[in-house]
Amino acid sequence: MILEEILSIFLGIFTDYTLRYVALGSAILGITSGALGCFTVLRKQSLFGDAIAHAALPGIGFAYLFAGTKDSLLLMLGAAIFAWFGGMITLAITSTTRIKQDAALGITLSVFFGLGIVLLSYLQSIGGASQGGLDRFLFGQAAALIESDVINLGILSAVCFTILILFYKEFKITTFDSSFGQSLGFPIKYLNVLLTSVIVVAVVIGLHTVGVVLMVSMLIAPAAAARQWTSNLKNMIILSAIFGGLSGIIGSMISSTAEGMSTGPVIVITITAILGISFVFSPKQGYLFRYIRNQRKSQTSLDNIKTISDKEKENHGNI
């Protein structure tokens, strides 16, 4: 009975027009942010994604204010410009003052978001209900995705992956040993800017589906989950993309069954669940196998002690 229901939801991806685009859009987001999130996690910049996602909000407001349309490509462009600007401001604060990265991120995040709220409320006061569609970027609204949105997201994602494949070696070196990369003559500074820009694109894709607030989770959680299973960067990126895509599809399917359940939060809970499963079941670092290994280890040492004491008994006889 339950199986049948699950099957029908799953088949819905192929038959139901809306669900197909919702699932496809969420999957694109999950795959892109999963792959690129690996770099933010490994570079210890996890919360950078949080700051630039929040920083994107005023960009959406400005794009709407000046262009006057809700054309998703224009809004995404505005979002990307501000997200990028926010990222650069954060880097500038940490490099020119004694303020540490965490506070710099907090400053960018809250101030840009505040500005975004000011703009949205201004649009509301001048334009009446027309602003309603912009609210959806706060928590994302995958359910509102239409074919043209999904095509745009797909193109952006393809751009990200092309850059990732072309610059894979360079990104790898800047991530793990940037001073070594510099000594080899790689333009580390430009590579960092390029990598930040690609992450900005991933964040902008995410604004449609999970929204500003929960975007950080889509960057970190798949990468952190993949990290539990492998220590190889290439495998980690592939696995992380799979986890991200899977959570996008599962999340959008679950949210389509329940009335009024927003897609973003459900996707986030799904990916966190995948992370939890990885913590427990990963073969090398997981809690389950570590427990089994420890049990075995103590069993072997018990056995060893037993054999030694048996030998002692044989050699010296019973006393």
Binding site: S46, F139, V216, L219, M261, P265, V268, I269, L275, F279
Partner: peptide, 26 residues
């Protein structure tokens, strides 16, 4: 030891917030 501090923050709070949002909307 599984995650760095900033990653832990970035995983826990969206998770709890997401549950909160779903409870509110439900």
């Amino acid at each position: 030891g599984k995650l760095k501090q900033d990653s832990s923050i970035g995983i826990i709070f969206p998770f709890l917030f997401a549950i909160g949002v779903i409870l509110v909307t439900q």
